[in-house]
Design a protein around this nucleic acid. Structure first.
Lengths: 197, 197
DNA sequence: GTCTATAAGAGGATAGAC
DNA sequence: GTCTATCCTCTTATAGAC
């Protein structure tokens, strides 16, 4: 059973995703939750605060998932770890694409009144995600698995670009990527972008 | 010098793209145009009508561009025409990506009150675009340039999917695709999806 | 914690003068 | 064609009772 606080966030997330921030109003959220608007303001001091709490939790969930991947903590070659990370993220998104669609919506079409705060938050979370990837890339370079002619940042950029693109494809086409496809996509990507450079 | 009608559409397009339909209000459009709200209602009977007129014009512009490509009317092999069409569309989008970003926004995150009408309009325009591609695909099959093991519709789907994804990549990454890249992308796509099937 | 009641303003749209 | 003035509804948010 969800607490009132969680119910509000659950309903608001759904409406912010489907209808967008501006078109979603407090009354509708409250109607679906089964409370009066004044009660919502007991939990969240404004519509903006409600939105940002949800936004942060979407990212928190993703980062926590990545940090919980057991294989990344084991003594495994770092290139295998990069593949495992990619595969895990795609599987995480396949299970429930709505969180990624939410992020895409607000990164691509940010409401003006959320712009400044959202840009800072985005930077913060991307930095966290990039650092995890950068550590693995560094290890690959140290062990000479990939060339040192490019910077770590370049490799990280290619990796996140590749991963994000698969996510966007899943959102737009509304299809899931099979294990076989994940493997094929990775092989193509790894051979053309990371090896022999 | 733009007419008042065109000025309204120009300003409204910009705001509908950047702020979204719900967050854009008539008063703001009128302020930027330099008229009073009641004057806008002389040209457009509602906010929805204004939006749909803009939406249709964005598609009209794209279809008119495609129909104006001289090479598609010449006596050239149909596979070369398919490449020319792809190349032309990417160049058309490179010149001004905002129209495609507008379409992506409203196809991916459609305001509820526009949903039904927009779905019908979308079907109408996609049908037009697909027919142009289907004609070229049919010619390729007739001349045995591509295999007949798949339906025309399958080929068309692959083609539009491929093209649209390059457009989405341009929108999200905010970069343009060079002539060289257009050619390489096409070769890869053609060899893996159209030949020997 | 949840309610009723309401403030204060912004929204789309219209009537009718010029 | 463009204006002034205004209608009516919806919006976020708050005050204060229980």
């Amino acid at each position: 059973m969800l607490s009132t606080n969680d119910k509000i966030k659950y309903v608001a997330f759904k409406l912010f995703l489907e209808k967008g921030y501006e078109a979603t109003n407090i009354r509708e959220i409250c109607r679906e939750v089964g409370i009066k608007p004044s009660s919502l303001y007991f939990y969240f001091k404004s519509k903006q605060e409600l939105f940002f709490r949800i936004y942060d939790e979407v990212w928190e969930d993703k980062i926590r998932f990545i940090e919980s991947i057991e294989d990344l903590k084991q003594d495994i070659p770092p290139d295998i770890k990069l593949y495992t990370l990619f595969k895990s993220i795609i599987e995480y998104c396949s299970k429930d694409i709505s969180k990624q669609k939410f992020l895409l919506r607000y990164h691509l079409f940010t409401p003006k009144e959320l712009m400044n705060a959202l840009r800072d938050k985005f930077k913060y979370w991307i930095y966290k995600e990039d650092n995890i990837i950068a550590d693995l890339v560094k290890e690959c370079m140290d062990r000479r698995i990939i060339g040192s002619g490019r910077t770590v940042a370049d490799y990280v950029k290619d990796y996140t670009r590749f991963t994000n693109f698969q996510i966007v494809e899943m959102i737009i086409s509304n299809i899931k990527i099979s294990s076989r496809e994940i493997h094929d996509l990775w092989t193509k990507f790894w051979n053309s972008n990371f090896l022999n450079q």
